[in-house]
Amino acid sequence: MSRPSKPEPMQVVKQRRDATLDALVARVPFIRTLGVVFERRGDELTAILPYREMLIGNPILPALHGGATAGFLEVAALIELTWTQVWPNVESGRITPEQVTQASALRMPKTVDFTIDYLRSGLPRDAYARARVNRSGRRYASVHVEGWQDNRSRLFAQATGHFVMPAAPSDDG
């Protein structure tokens, strides 16, 4: 709204978006524990689970632990959902990346249910995921996530989750 009509310098835009994403991810300790990182192209996010020995659930095959895959996909879904909520506010200047780092300034959606479909065993190498918000209402959201490793078209897991959205600041007492 208050943005000047002249486009901002590219570095300013990129810096603001990257700082926001970094802040969103850094505030969740479990994301660091699992080791998930995110790449951004415009508003499109890709979650990456770099392979580590601690993610193994079947040492004989070996294969990733189903619980590690589940956590990875849930992290990807939650960050995508929060990102799509925050994006318009950050772009318009209503929220600064600094505010995102404050735990109290940004409420996270809550997972209601999460259903994971294991399509093939997770190989001992990096995994990727992209989430799509299929429905985002004032109170509830439905998010689908796809996970793959070597081939984008050969998913190793997919998941759908429902989330309760945090109350808007204006709804607070």
Binding site: R27, V28, P29, F30, T33, A70, G71, E74, A103, M108
Partner: peptide
């Protein structure tokens, strides 16, 4: 290490899933 929401200290759903 397992916290999902720093505002509440509640464990992440992904850890409960595992």
């Amino acid at each position: 290490d397992l916290v999902g929401d720093p505002a509440t200290g509640v464990v992440h759903g992904g850890a409960v899933s595992a």
